[in-house]
């Protein structure tokens, strides 16, 4: 296990009240994973990620990275350890007084790398994040997306094992967000870097994360593989986030007219996971069975672990044929959920 977090808590004590910003969080993150943490504003996501590199001191609990107990390190050892934990920020936090080149060189200066080695590393990183030719620009001369690329290059300068991202794309437009997310995925694969990604946007999780934890009021209310959470969200918060991704999909009200108690009609929800989503299941069914299929609504979402799709259909036909059809669909690996009530 790359990162192991045990019973991590943070209590802010203030004059008027105390805020339990992070409440007894236990998580394990595998090496090379992109681990998403999603939650609404005030859920404690930023506090949580800042506890990992101790920008915030935990009131309780333990953070282990690569068998180093971060929570027990002395100030000096912590500084050394932080060089191996990259971090990127929502507002980039670049030094405006330094050029792109000098910003990326900064963590290397901190680590005491010699000038010649610094140069090689900075140029390599500039190449990696696609900013060649902009070395001498100042941050004020860059777009948001370019600034975040500098932020990423800077975070990677000392070859970290972990990259912490706090809302790294929240200040960017959708297209730039996609570029940055793609960059993070390619870095994750190229460098086998473990990434912790804080966000309040489900599509960020969908697009790049392998695993996800859902936070609410300081607690992790749900965690698991992204696909599992997508297909079967358990907690109310997770359900709301899945819905946010595809507002139509869980709008079951519009299914109501089709849900009858009649023998020869059935509304079913099909879950396509992974490669099943790409198969021509419906036309297969129509060729094989004497049945009519009404497509009511559907969606497809690509995730890091494969494509995930849902399809609501109404099956019209002989009762026995309907049952056979459902069995056939199930046998082809697609999950079928019979909807007989709208929630």
């Amino acid at each position: 296990m790359m990162i192991s977090i045990k019973q991590l808590s943070k209590l802010y004590r203030m004059k008027s009240q105390n805020v339990q910003a992070v409440d007894d969080v236990t998580l394990d993150i595998k090496r090379g994973d992109i681990f998403g943490v999603i939650g609404y504003s005030g859920a404690g996501k930023s506090t949580f990620i800042r506890l990992i590199n101790r920008l915030e001191e935990p009131t309780q609990g333990q953070v282990m990275i690569n068998d180093t107990n971060i929570t027990e390190l002395s100030v000096n050892k912590l500084r050394k350890e932080r060089q191996k934990i990259g971090m990127i920020f929502q507002h980039f936090n670049l030094l405006w007084s330094r050029t792109v080149y000098e910003n990326i060189a900064f963590p290397l200066e901190i680590a005491g790398v010699t000038k010649q080695k610094r140069r090689d590393k900075v140029l390599e990183l500039i190449e990696l994040v696609g900013l060649s030719g902009r070395e001498q620009s100042y941050p004020s001369q860059l777009s948001g997306g370019q600034k975040q690329r500098v932020g990423i290059a800077r975070a990677l300068a000392n070859d970290p094992d972990v990259l912490l991202c706090d809302e790294a794309t929240s200040a960017l437009d959708p297209e730039t967000t996609d570029d940055i997310l793609n960059l993070l995925v390619s870095i994750n694969q190229k460098l086998n870097l473990t990434i912790i990604m804080i966000t309040h946007e489900m599509h960020v999780i969908q697009k790049i994360c392998h695993r996800v934890a859902v936070m609410d009021q300081g607690k992790v209310v749900e965690q698991g593989d992204v696909l599992d959470v997508f297909v079967k969200p358990q907690s109310k918060t997770a359900k709301r986030f899945v819905q946010q991704l595809n507002p139509l999909e869980h709008n079951q009200d519009s299914l109501k007219p089709f849900i009858t108690k009649e023998e020869n009609s059935e509304v079913v929800k099909l879950h396509f996971i992974g490669n099943d989503a790409k198969r021509a299941l419906i036309s297969n069914v129509l060729k094989t069975f004497d049945i009519e299929i009404n497509i009511l609504q559907g969606s497809i979402s690509p995730t890091q672990e494969g494509t995930y799709g849902t399809l609501y259909v109404e099956l019209d036909g002989n009762r026995s044929v309907i049952d056979e059809t459902i069995k056939f669909i199930q046998s082809s690996g697609v999950e079928v959920e019979v909807i007989d009530d709208v929630t």
Binding site: N53, L55, L78, R79, K80, E81, R82, Q83, I85, M87, F89, H91, N93, L94, L95, W96, S97, R98, F106, P107, E109, I110, A111, R154, N158, L164
Partner: peptide, 29 residues
């Protein structure tokens, strides 16, 4: 001086004197 920038320097493992001479002074020049 942007608190975020000081925090970024901390997250890189900067010592206090590094933050003074390489962040605070240049950023407030």
């Amino acid at each position: 001086v942007d608190k975020g920038v000081i925090e970024a320097a901390k997250s890189m493992g900067a010592k206090t004197h590094t933050i003074i001479f390489k962040v605070l002074l240049p950023e407030s020049m």
